[in-house]
Design a protein around this nucleic acid. Structure first.
Length: 862
DNA sequence: GCAAGGTC
């Protein structure tokens, strides 16, 4: 029997589609990556009995990146990223080993049906799947067609059945348009990001971001926030005047009337109107009206609306809301949370969904009433053809979910119930009054039937006092007429919800990526989230956007994305050649890039105002080996040392503290050593700022401290302080921390292993002798006379930390000793490993004698 | 270390 492999875009869809096509009779098992399942059943295909294997990927299989060597920031000119730098497709998520999984499942299959989402990204994933699977599928010799594409717009029996009955072919042009987008985003984003970051990081010491990124989505997103900031800044309040009148209704109630002219901006004119009205005793009713109005029930819920409400009403950021929704989905509480659709499919079981909520402690009454009196047909929304709107899938209580998960679930459920509830009906009454020559109005709303606002109380029409019944010609006594002086007020910072709306409107990002872009501009310190989830741009954010405005406003305008997308659509429609469009667009942006680089001074002028140059930042810490002047330690990320005399910057390890190391110097370059430490309980090691950036020996890499330095005689080096192979990792060596006394520590120079050894020892030295059993370096320890743990009055002892019976009692390594390679491996492991890594054999000179620094460097870069 | 797009 032949086999048909079928692939959907995500595990949940593979399951639903298989369920529909197999009419529920399938057998399922997990695939080798643990994320995707395979659902098997038998059926008919191309007029023959076959075995179907339905499975899925997890989004894109591949991702685009530059070849490895083009990812070295200090070796590649960002301008090269526009054309010279070659790209390659890498597996998008190596942990899932998706290619291998597809090949295991696809091996020996005869046909493949692609059930990827019916959008451009899905079309592109079709070809990623084919690239992986076709080579291992059975080959036909008859030229028979073996690759099929299923096109569907909803996950319903009819739609899926129809798709299966009318299989087509994957659309290569659509896939190509995505390839083009990927390459453009990569090349443009990385080129600008690297250039900006390097340029400004090399000049300023107090930038509040270690990465100054640029992207066709994130930059316009920031642009919206700064645009609002500019409006606020340039806002000039204007004074205006309004007339306010009160008339006496029945008893001691009075009505507040609004002036029909609303407001005037000239005090004298306002005063004139006041004079014409303030002496009037009566207000005459000119007209009355009562209109029944309706507030519409909401449309079915899609992702973007959920994110808006989560932000504005629940105070949950989009990223957090999305994560919470995903958890609710995987736990089976809600339907798939990423959808653009606001229209329920025709066969959607609204009543069934409602029935699940009929006994809920919070809304049982409303639901039961709807079920007995009949539900209202939902409003017609937009069908994007992706997934049904977000709805609850089963009932859940506050105790069960708790916290934000509950709050989001509650909102989703109330929203769903609202979509099948009646509209809210209210009566809008207005009375027009004349006081002297001027017209005033009073209006009020009274609810007739609350409809959906019962389940969404935050949407209710506010209670207002009802207006008196009256008719044209009636008169009321005027209580007072007064003139109020007011000022126009500036808009407030953009709320997250408003930003989401703007992004959606301009096509910046997708429902799934909008939260990511917003998160990005927060993490890069371009904006901060203020109370009410309003986004306030930082100095850095403002300077960047103003700089783009100055140099090339297109870089920050929302049209940058749509213009490119227009071009990409031409590829998708087969109206333009992929290579031509890609080449042309890259050329445009390459020119923009060069113009930007040439004009960067314009942005720099703005930068200077907010940030301080490197030379003026930081505090003097250690001496430069070249000029012997103090270099300044710049703590702001990325932390580094800057020598203003030599105009050189030396990067340092991040996430830790840096101190001067006793004014000791590196024997190779005369730089003063600094001591890095990860905290009081963690490890620490000295490093030479120059060697850390320019490795002195061939077997060293950038970013190595003295604990990895292979200098044969320097007292701080691995060669002198290394003890033996790490007890946990493969390649590390345990190195004595010379600063750790009197509670001495040894730490691995590769992994996080730290072990405490001797307390109350005033000196610990690594001996040149080695252990006969395990080849580790012996330690020579002098204990404190009064507190010596040694038998008798001994204060000095030399031995191996792993094997010496006296030391084993004192060393934390004793529990680790049994795991030490020497002890766990059996006889065969003695040679080659152990201490030989870190230390030269005793008595033998190191065969790699260091040459002088410059020739060592020259050799290194060969 | 960089983009944006899928999804886990």
């Amino acid at each position: 029997m032949k086999t048909v492999l079928m692939v959907a875009e995500k595990p949940s869809l593979a399951q639903s589609i298989a369920k529909i096509l197999s009419r529920g009779s399938m057998s399922s098992h997990k695939g080798l990556n643990g994320a995707c399942s395979v659902h098997e059943y038998t059926g008919a295909f191309a007029g023959q009995p076959v075995r179907f294997k339905m499975t899925s990927v997890c989004g894109h299989v591949m991702t685009l990146d530059f070849l490895g060597k083009y990812n070295k920031w200090d070796k590649v000119d960002p301008a090269e990223l526009f054309s010279q730098a070659p790209t390659e497709k890498k597996e998008a998520n190596p942990k899932l080993s998706m290619v291998k999984f597809l090949q295991v499942e696809g091996r020996g299959c005869d046909y493949i049906v692609l059930w990827l989402d019916c959008d451009k990204e899905g079309e592109n994933i079709c070809f990623e799947v084919l690239d992986a699977v076709l080579p291992v599928m059975n080959k036909t010799h008859s030229g028979e067609k073996t690759v099929f594409r299923a096109r569907f717009s909803s996950i319903t029996d009819t739609d899926i059945g129809n798709a299966m009955a009318h299989l087509g072919e994957p659309d290569h042009n659509e896939a190509l348009s995505v390839d083009a987008r990927q390459e453009l985003d990569l090349r443009i984003g990385c080129a600008f990001t690297r250039f900006q970051t390097k340029y400004f990081q090399g000049k300023y010491g107090d930038l509040d971001s270690s990465l100054i990124s640029f992207g066709p989505c994130q930059t316009p997103t920031l642009g919206f926030c700064v645009e609002r900031h500019d409006k606020i800044q340039s806002f000039k309040p204007e004074t205006y005047w309004v007339l306010q009148a009160k008339v006496n209704a029945d008893k001691d109630k009075s009505l507040l009337l609004d002036w029909d002219r609303v407001r005037v901006f000239d005090r004298e004119i306002a005063q004139m109107f006041l004079n014409m009205t303030k002496l009037e005793k009566e207000a005459q009713v000119e007209a009355t009206s009562r209109k029944e109005k309706a507030k519409q029930r909401p449309l079915a819920l899609n992702t973007v609306e959920m994110l808006r409400v989560a932000s504005s009403a629940l105070g949950m950021g989009p990223q957090h809301a999305m994560q919470t929704a995903e958890r609710l989905y995987t736990q089976g509480y809600i339907s798939y949370p990423r959808t653009e659709t606001t229209h329920y499919p025709e066969n959607f079981d609204l009543k069934g969904c409602l029935r699940q909520q009929a006994n809920h402690p919070y809304w049982a009454d409303t639901v039961k009433q709807l079920l007995t009196e009949g539900i209202n047909r939902p409003r017609k929304g937009h069908d994007a053809g992706d997934h049904p709107p977000i709805t609850p899938m089963r009932s859940a209580t506050e105790d069960e979910l708790g916290g934000d998960a509950w709050r989001l679930y509650e909102y989703i459920t109330r929203h769903f119930i609202a979509t099948v509830s009646p509209d809210c009906k209210y009566l809008q009454s207005t009375i027009s009054f004349r006081i002297g020559p001027e017209l005033f109005t009073c209006s009020g709303k009274t609810v007739i039937s609350p409809g959906f606002t019962e389940i969404m109380p935050w949407q209710s029409v506010p209670l207002e006092e009802s207006l008196p019944t009256c008719q044209r010609g009636d008169t009321f006594a005027v209580g007072e007429v007064k003139m109020l002086e007011k000022q126009t007020s500036p808009p407030d910072y953009l709320t997250e919800a408003e930003l989401i709306t703007l992004m959606e409107k301009h096509g910046i990002g997708t429902d799934a990526s909008i939260p990511v872009h917003i998160n990005n501009i927060c993490q890069r310190n371009y904006v901060t989230v203020e109370s009410g989830r309003r986004l306030k741009p930082t100095n850095l954010g403002i300077v960047l956007v103003h700089g783009y405005y100055k140099i090339d406003a297109e870089l920050v305008l929302p049209t940058i994305r749509s213009a490119v997308e227009k071009q990409l659509n031409l590829i998708a429609q087969g109206k333009a050649d992929y290579r031509q469009v890609l080449g042309h667009t890259l050329d445009v942006f390459k020119r923009k890039f060069h113009y930007f680089v040439d004009s960067i001074a314009g942005m720099d002028e703005l930068m200077e105002v907010s940030f301080s140059p490197l030379a003026a930042t930081g505090k003097p810490l250690s001496r430069c080996g070249k000029c012997h002047r103090f270099m300044k330690y710049i703590q702001a990320k990325p932390s580094r040392l800057h020598c203003s005399h030599c105009d050189e910057t030396y990067t340092l390890p991040q996430n830790g503290t840096i101190k001067l190391y006793k004014e000791l110097r590196c024997p190779l370059d005369d730089f003063e050593l600094v001591l890095w430490s990860s905290g009081s309980r963690g490890k620490s090691y000295p490093l030479c700022p120059y060697c850390y950036n320019h490795p002195p020996f061939r077997d060293m890499k950038k970013g190595m401290g003295c604990n990895e330095c292979t200098h044969p005689t320097c007292q701080h080096s691995l060669s002198m302080l290394g003890i033996g192979q790490c007890v946990e990792c493969e390649s590390g060596v345990l190195v004595l921390d010379p600063t750790s006394g009197p509670k001495w520590k040894v730490a691995c120079n590769k992994c996080n292993v730290v072990a405490h050894c001797f307390e109350n020892a005033h000196r610990v030295r690594v001996s040149a002798d080695t252990c006969h059993t395990c080849e580790a370096a012996l330690l020579d320890v002098d204990f404190n006379k009064a507190k010596s743990p040694l038998p008798g009055d001994e204060t000095q002892h030399t031995g191996c930390v792993f094997c010496d019976p006296v030391f084993q009692e004192l060393v934390e390594l004793k529990h680790a000793a049994s795991c030490h390679p020497m002890h766990r491996g059996g006889p065969g492991r003695r040679q080659g490993r152990g201490r030989a890594r870190g230390r030269r054999p005793p008595g033998k000179p190191n065969p790699r004698r260091p040459r002088d620094k410059m020739s060592a460097l020259a050799a290194y870069f060969v």
